[in-house]
Design a binder for these strands. Structure first.
Lengths: 202, 202
DNA sequence: GGTTCGTTGCACACTGCTGTGCAATCTAAT
DNA sequence: ATTAGATTGCACAGCAGTGTGCAACGAACC
């Protein structure tokens, strides 16, 4: 039993502002990765000084953000891996599960090459490994092409997914479908099979 | 007749330092797009003040850099377009011709989402159009898939090429071949045909 | 009612960058 | 030898962002 710590109205309010800052920061930094603490604070309806009250430094804020995102993605990936399906089916499942929040996590890509690129890279390591393993299994079982080593191919493929999640598709194109097909194609899955896989899942 | 202005040794030397600054800036900014004028100057073996002697502002330097790159790429693209080949053949030719200098031009991608993103986007417009047209023709003639509108698909495909040009391929994988195949795959070209196309060209 | 505590508003010092001014220097041109 | 001009070294102002300190406010808590 986890003792409910009474959640005094103040503690709850404080946690709310903290979460709001994090949510807004994800959004703001996704649009302009160089946004300062002032911008983030303003977008969260709070004064800059308050942000420093919750996160001692800008790096601290970003690290928390990253840990959040990485935790969520690893959870999805380990869950999918437990299913024991074929690699291409797993990939479709992965994109389908990640897509709804992918545009929120475009910050992942935006911040890799940034001021704190080094610190971020460490945090993203687990996710990269899981994806590379998935692609490697797909190559070993013959469903994915071998024109690139798994570590590189996986990065390219999920990079494409996030890039698409960040794009406004002009006509009524459903983004999730297009993103899944595109990534499957570059993984070497034939178009016919890609379409079959996607239409079975979605 | 363009009068040869005698190329006094001084003018030539000055042009050399100017070119060296541009070359080095391309390199430095490619690695860290936020590099300052000081960094660029130091890398060029010159004092910061000298850089300002050639380029009145940082934006001016970057704009010159972009104009250079865009001019080179449009030249390649219009030349290829004049050949009248099929779209997938044209694409292979495009990657083959661009590849040798692609890693120098990773700055194109790095600076799109930057401080001067707006100014850059305008300069890159012509290149984007040429690529989108090429992909659109390929879709119309049935060699490229239609899972995405040409403007988006072309961006993704050449984004993948530049991303690969910026990656150290671990084993002895020839980058140009892998990049061409990967981009062809995501354009919807079947793997067998992609390999045939690439091996015929290279 | 008084206290606690998150929040606010303002202050400040510090850093790192941009862009400019100017005298000094060194070299190619005359 | 003198001059013109590119480069240098240094100084400066300006701006933007970070992180901190502190008094004051206001609402929940006892």
């Amino acid at each position: 039993m986890v003792s409910v710590p009474a959640e005094s109205s103040r503690t709850r309010a404080m946690k709310e502002t903290r979460d709001r800052i994090l949510d807004v920061a994800l959004e703001v930094l996704g649009e302009s990765p160089d946004a300062g603490m002032g911008e983030i604070a303003a977008a969260a309806g709070v004064v800059r000084r308050t942000v420093y009250g919750h996160f001692p430094s800008r790096l601290d804020l970003i690290r928390t953000l990253m840990e959040r995102a990485v935790a969520e993605m690893t959870a999805v990936l380990t869950d999918i891996n437990a299913g024991g399906a074929a690699a291409d089916v797993m990939w479709v499942e992965f994109v389908a599960r990640v897509w709804p929040v992918a545009h929120r996590y475009r910050v992942l890509l935006a911040l890799r090459r940034g001021e704190y690129g080094e610190a971020i890279h460490g945090l993203l390591g687990p996710v990269d490994e899981l994806l590379a393993d998935l692609v490697a299994r797909g190559q070993d079982s013959g469903v994915f092409a071998r024109h690139l080593p798994p570590a590189v191919l996986s990065q390219l493929a999920y990079g494409a997914v996030f890039a698409l999640a960040d794009t406004d598709l002009p006509d009524g194109a459903r983004g999730a479908r297009a993103a899944t097909i595109t990534s499957l194609l570059m993984l070497g899955v034939p178009e016919a099979r890609a379409i079959t896989l996607v239409d079975n899942r979605l």
